[in-house]
Design a protein around this nucleic acid. Structure first.
Lengths: 343, 343
DNA sequence: TTGAAAGCGCTAACAC
DNA sequence: GTGTTAGCGCTTTCAA
């Protein structure tokens, strides 16, 4: 491989200054009144010598890296990987690159990742945060373009893109009520302060309350992030053994829904007759499980799109109004067999 | 935010040279005979002023970025997102960061991504390539540490980590034969030259041949990457309409398997009685679909681990023997209902 | 044991 | 219209 061509090489070959070449490359030729003629010569020489600017040098100099960071709890969860995919596509179109970080819901790790990404001078961050309070994160996000997705915080200025958790849970609750269900458990995760979990729970509980249905504490089940599968099984088994089973379960995310389905089947509980099941966040395969699983479907790709769009506008210093800063996207109730009482 | 502390600030505050501080920071203090005393003072000052080296400046200077690139066909496919997750975990542990790129099986896009990542001076690349010939890619990979995963090429020097496609297909074929199946179709993707597809097909066909079973051309079905879902449905519908259905289908990846299951159900074909189904690459949900789906399970996390390990060793200029360069990981046949003929 | 100085490749203020 | 020059913050000879 021949020696790497630098901007200076171009300048020398042409007998002009580096400045001039730099201006032309960065499209500031006209604005600085460089003659068309010269610009053309520069561009041709660049082509001829196959010059490629040194991204690192440029980044070092300008502090702009054309890189964004995407922080989620687990990139192998399809909800996040689909968002990642969409973000990546948009990023690629706009000359950006995406660094991915999984936090495992670890608050401290998340903060470290933000620090690390900032040290690497990413131009912006898209974050699905696991923080309880926004403060620590907020401090680190100071001065850097960022968009919070999925999980949000109240009364903050940051741009946020999320699904309508309230509406989703309301739809789920009313649907269960319409099936004549009176006793229902919520399958949720730890930590319980995560906004999606909180909102989904609250909306669900308050909607049920309107039909005079209460969710007792022992049916508000929190499963730790680690070993979710076995934990779900244990908890359900316990309920079964103590003959304390609800008529329906509302699982607050796709993993919980899957594990719940699996566990119920292992326990030989018939769905929906013994227990109905409905989940938040739909998956393709919910349509061909046994039974097929009802779920609240989120506009996942749109979350990615909107988030990148809002981020890019911040990076480009565009004005974003207060209303635009917070994007709530509509969800949809998909009724399948798992929640349709036949009797 | 106070002005960013630089290495020079540390040096000045201590009345020593930048050189010295730099050496200490990079752990070359002892090797250069810098007194313990001085080293301690430097370290303390760094702590006191909360100095953090400028990653970009360092990267610019040394050409090392502590970043690796991961190129796959689609990060939202759980096979790849699980690999990504594992790679990311290992990377994080070792102070590396992962840039993710999805190619959509687009040969040209893949090459561009490699170029882009090289311009960004990533320290290494992990690639699941969609190239037909290795040449173009190989040229771009010249001189940069890299590991090919999943999809491989014959007779090359690059490090490769992949599942035992041959063994997997053999297990699948023999299993179907054991069920008394004589007519079987292969559901595959375009482009057909991809190594995994080729190997799985060949092994499957040749194993069946030993039982005197041939796979006619019209049952070697290739589905384009885009619009996979509808394409699968159409092709199967056509077979049904022309009364040309096989007794079993071997689907070559997890997406094909899912879509196939869905399509067969839509066509009201009973599985496994009308048609048996077995897939390459297992998914958690295959155990609770209707019917549950048999599959060849790949050691996904191990692929990620091994790949990162091999990459890191290259980055650190460690010796890697020819035998170590090529890692074939064992697969497992998971028999479920979709391929178990009851009659 | 330590320091001076050069320079990586680029951009941008300021001249001319 | 174009050029000079001064760094960005770091590493690395080479010298002392």
């Amino acid at each position: 491989m021949s020696k790497k061509i630098s901007l200076a090489d171009i300048a020398n070959a042409l007998g002009v200054s580096k400045t001039l070449v730099s201006l032309v490359i960065n499209g500031k030729g006209n604005e600085h009144g460089i003659s068309k003629e010269t610009q053309k010569r520069v561009l041709e020489k660049i082509d001829e010598l196959n010059y490629r600017p040194n991204v690192l040098a440029r980044g070092f100099r300008t502090g702009k890296t054309n890189t964004i960071g995407l922080i989620v709890s687990d990139i192998s969860n399809r909800f996040y990987s689909r968002i990642a995919r969409r973000v990546e596509d948009y990023a690629w179109e706009h000359g950006y690159t995406v660094i991915i970080c999984s936090t495992d819901e670890n608050v401290e790790k998340e903060l470290q990742q933000v620090k690390m990404l900032r040290e690497r001078k990413v131009d912006g961050l898209i974050i699905s945060s696991s923080q309880e309070k926004y403060e620590d994160l907020s401090r680190l996000l100071n001065d850097v373009p960022h968009v919070l997705i999925d999980r949000t915080f109240n009364g903050i200025n940051s741009a946020q893109v999320y699904a309508d958790n309230y509406q989703g849970s309301k739809l789920a609750a009313n649907h269960l009520v319409s099936q004549g269900i009176k006793n229902v458990a919520i399958l949720s995760i730890t930590p319980e302060y995560i906004s999606t979990i909180r909102e989904r729970t609250q909306a669900f509980v308050s909607t049920l309350a309107k039909s005079n249905i209460a969710v007792p504490a022992e049916w508000n089940i929190h499963i730790p992030f680690k070993n979710m599968e076995s934990a779900v099984e244990e908890r359900l088994q316990m309920l079964k053994e103590t003959k304390n089973l609800p008529e329906a379960i509302f699982a607050l995310n796709n993993n919980l829904t899957s594990h719940c389905l699996l566990a119920l089947r292992k326990l030989s509980l018939s769905i929906p007759d013994d227990i109905a099941l409905i989940g938040f966040d739909d998956m393709l395969y919910f349509s061909f499980t046994q039974p097929s699983v009802s779920a609240i479907s989120q506009p996942i790709e749109q979350i990615g799109e909107k988030a990148f769009d809002l981020l890019l506008r911040q990076i480009n210093n565009e004005e974003i109004t207060i209303e635009e800063r917070s994007v709530k996207l509509p969800v949809e109730l998909i009724i399948r067999d798992s929640s349709t009482k036949t009797s």
